[in-house]
């Protein structure tokens, strides 16, 4: 690992200033569970690392009317064990519990996961399917506008995620087929239904692990589920292999098949 300047600001305003003055070479750090492995492999060489860990008010969970707001620095293990999250959006607590392993969950954060937008990460599926809103130190960004491609987001240089607000669905479930070594998703499908009997917008389905451009919405499955929320209704509607990613872990054809299976399981689990 190359050396760098280390900063641990105590406020969001100080973090933003430090990030700005570091220019292109500055890197934010939250839980470090992605950044540190990247630095160890010398895949990044920041001149400055700005550790958000000292900004206490970035961590925490609040139920706010019909939404659950999760601070950017909240760890996966805190989300997994939160009674508020379990009570309002059980699928989200279960998703957090399925990330990596206990040690990764004790450190890794929702803000870091979403900012990183790994195409096999779990949280992006929840953010997209639940139509969450991402709040930064500069603005609010809708989920549909946030994920821009592999490891790419709408975040601008200098922008810091402060929280993610998830609308509470009527029903939801997340089912993933994990890579047995890393627990990252080979395919993960998040299904959420809002309101009852709505047309089109009532059901949102997001797929992670499989897309050539990262997480995406499965519109055909959404349409079918809005008319008839049952596993039978989506038989054969999984996206074709030509639009999917294939690698040493799974071929595009296998991923296409898995999307169908995971989607049906998610619908069944959502009840």
């Amino acid at each position: 690992m190359y050396d760098f300047q280390y900063h641990r600001p105590a406020s969001l305003a100080d973090a933003a200033k430090l990030l700005q003055s570091a220019g292109d070479d500055g890197k934010l750090m939250a839980g470090g569970q992605t950044l540190i492995p990247t630095l160890k492999q010398r895949l990044a060489q920041p001149s400055a690392v700005i550790d958000l860990g000292g900004i206490k008010d970035l961590a925490g969970i609040k139920v706010d009317g019909n939404a659950v707001m999760i601070g950017a620095l909240t760890t996966h293990s805190t989300v997994a064990s939160s009674k508020d999250v379990a009570g309002k959006i059980k699928a989200l607590a279960q998703l957090a519990e399925g990330i990596g392993d206990r040690q990764v969950r004790h450190c890794g954060t929702i803000g870091g996961s979403i900012a990183n937008n790994d195409p096999a990460a779990d949280y992006p599926a929840a953010v997209l399917a639940l139509n969450a809103t991402i709040t930064t130190n500069q603005r609010k960004i809708a989920a549909d506008e946030f994920f821009k491609g592999l490891f790419e987001t709408a975040l601008k240089p200098g922008e810091i995620i402060t929280s993610v607000s998830f609308p509470v669905p009527e029903k939801a479930a997340y089912v993933k087929f994990p890579n047995p070594a890393s627990r990252y998703a080979i395919v993960g499908v998040f299904v959420a239904r809002f309101g009852s009997g709505g047309t089109g917008g009532g059901v949102r389905v997001a797929v992670t692990g499989a897309g050539q451009g990262g997480v995406f919405r499965a519109h055909k499955i959404e349409e079918a589920l809005s008319k008839n929320f049952s596993a039978k209704a989506i038989e054969g509607l999984h996206p074709p292999a030509s639009s999917l990613n294939g690698d040493i872990h799974a071929s595009a054809e296998y991923r296409s098949h898995l999307i169908g299976v995971m989607a049906k399981r998610a619908v069944a689990a959502a009840g």
């Binding site: 280390y6 641990r8 470090g32 569970q33 540190i36 492995p37 160890k40 550790d51 860990g53 293990s77 206990r102 040690q103 990764v104 004790h106 450190c107």
Partner: peptide, 18 residues
Amino acid sequence: VVHVDGKSVKACTMLAVQ
């Protein structure tokens, strides 16, 4: 794996300064 403030973490994935 060691415990930092009572929680298990991977000491190879945490900076000493953290």
